[in-house]
Write a protein that binds this DNA or RNA. Structure first.
Length: 484
RNA sequence: GCGGAGUUAGUUUAGUCUGGUAUGACGUCAGCUUCCCAAGCUGAAGGCCGCGGGUUCAAAUCCCGCACUCCGCACCA
């Protein structure tokens, strides 16, 4: 299904919509989740916890969104997360200073150079706007982080541009107090903030967005000694280095395109996780990034990408960050980050699985939404355990006591699952509405229910119905919506 | 940020050239009907036409500015 149709569903059925939309000064790049979107997101995260966090006995934390300046001096974001930009004084086009200089006069200046160095090079070589031949103004630094002023003195701090910095900063305490042992995974779900120049396509490019990040701390000498590797060695992953993606088992990957078993293990469990979200795994790939594409902190990087109607979309960045973060925070804070691994004292290396939640949710919607032309309906075929509404509870007609009976059934099950009560309108219309929000089941109270305490249960995907006892409803639903 | 297209009810849309406060459909709500898949009948709610300014007796409509959305470029830890 295409972007436009998903967008329409999102607006009409309460998945997501623009933030502050009633005001004209609403800024681009901010979106809200409605009731259906929150339901989907919560269940997606529960699946993530089951498949990754609990599976590997990781620790989960919830850190501050505003962090001090020192954090980002140490992390490199204040220096590296900024681009030197130049603006044409005539047509107002914006360019990156380093790239424009490199392209026009073949002079390489590192992007972290002093701003005057760009200005000097531009004036010495008489570089003009490639579009209109106008003059450039002074080079400016554009940092993608949002700066905030704390307290009356407006002390400098920043909204975090990635959630993981709290994990690095908290690592010494967590390792000591939680009795850590390498390898140790620490996870966090939360919001991150980036001042994107051109946010676009709703959930795909936001200025305020959700990440689910996992940082695995490990002994760099033991990257091929992974006890649990056998659990996933036969999982098929698709890896792309040069040319087309190649399907292979994790075992084969660890022996060829992926640096070691440690990295291959996480690519394997990540693939298993996404398969359970309902995303079409044959439309995914782990793309190895070249040196120019990688983030400044990454030694090796694989992007987990998925094919959508808008093209390939990055859902997860898998970065081997080596000791970049811990050694920089150690230097800046003068705290010790080394830990004992057996008899050996090591500064752990970090492998991260940095997941974009919003993009993942969009992809789940796009891959799950279908037009059932045979029955003239739109169906959101979500996995039952991800559906915002698990079951619709309907009265066939309102009269003859069916309404009261239906209310009774609803109150019996509403605490054990997400149930939705509906009496109004034609029964077919109510089924269609439930199909559109992805409710996997609908139960209907009819006249026979009054006689023998049974109801019909309808399956969303097949539209087939069967009759079950009301007394068995709770356990049947619980089984049907259980996580895998 | 540049260029292009667009913005009218929850959604979709007519009206914009040729100024006179807005049309239809779907959806929503209430009632009737209805023993299972968007049926029918009756009724209702919902828009100061993206925002601000200008021209005019009068602006959804003409002019200017801005914002947002989509596409392309650039950017994208």
């Amino acid at each position: 299904m295409n972007y436009e149709t998903v967008m329409k569903l999102a607006l009409e059925r309460g998945f997501y919509f623009p933030s502050c939309e009633i005001y004209a000064d609403a800024q681009a790049g901010f979106w809200e989740y409605g009731p259906s979107g929150v339901g989907l997101k919560n269940k997606f995260l529960e699946l993530w916890r089951r498949e990754l966090v609990r599976r590997d006995e990781m620790l989960e934390i919830d850190g501050s969104q505003i962090m001090s300046k020192s954090v980002f001096e140490a992390s490199g974001h204040l220096g590296n997360f900024a681009d030197p930009i130049i603006k044409c004084t005539k047509c107002n086009s914006t360019y990156r200073a380093d790239r424009t200089i490199a392209e026009t006069v073949q002079i390489t200046i590192p992007e972290s150079a002093e701003l005057t160095e760009f200005d000097d090079t531009i004036s010495h070589n008489n570089i003009k706007c490639p579009k209109c031949n106008g003059n450039f103004g002074k080079t400016e630094n554009f940092n993608m982080m949002f700066k905030v002023g704390i307290g009356p003195e407006k002390d400098e701090a920043y909204l975090r541009p990635e959630t993981c910095q709290s994990i690095f900063v908290d690592f010494p305490r967590l390792y000591k107090t939680m009795r850590g042992k390498l390898p140790l995974g620490i996870a966090q779900v939360g919001k991150s903030f980036r001042n994107e120049i051109a946010p676009r396509q709703s959930l795909l490019r936001l200025r305020e967005f959700y990440q689910a990040e996992i940082e695995v701390f490990c002994n760099p000498a033991k990257l091929d000694a992974v006890d649990k590797f056998s659990e996933i060695q036969d999982v098929i992953i698709r890896v792309q280095t040069d040319g087309d993606p190649v399907s292979m088992t994790c075992k084969e990957a660890a022996e060829s395109l992926v640096p070691n078993k440690f990295v291959a293990y996480y690519l394997g469990i990540l693939t298993e996780f996404y398969a359970k979200t309902g995303i079409d795994i044959t439309k995914t790939r782990f793309r190895k990034l070249g040196d120019k594409e990688k983030a400044f902190y990454a030694a090796v990087a694989f992007d987990f990408e998925v094919e959508t109607t808008l093209g390939w979309l990055e859902l997860v960045a898998c970065n081997y960050r080596s000791d970049y973060d811990l050694s920089n925070h150690s230097k800046k804070s003068k705290q010790k980050f080394e830990v004992m691994d057996g008899d050996e004292k090591v500064l752990p290396h970090v492998f991260e699985i940095s997941m974009g939640i919003d993009r993942s949710l969009y992809t789940i919607l796009e891959h799950s939404l279908r037009e059932d032309t045979e029955n003239d309906r739109t169906v959101l075929s979500l996995k039952p355990y991800l559906a915002p509404i698990h079951v619709g509870v309907l009265s066939l007609v309102k009269k003859d006591g069916l309404r009261e009976k239906t209310d009774d059934v609803f109150s019996q099950i509403k605490k054990r699952c997400d149930a939705f009560l509906d009496h109004s309108g034609a029964i077919g219309r109510r089924y269609r509405r439930l199909d559109e929000v992805g409710a996997p089941f609908a139960i209907t109270v009819d006249h026979q229910s009054l006689k023998d305490d049974t109801v019909t249960i309808r399956m969303r995907d097949s539209m087939e119905q069967s009759r079950i006892k009301i007394s068995e409803l709770g356990s049947t639903i619980s089984e049907s919506i259980a996580f895998p």
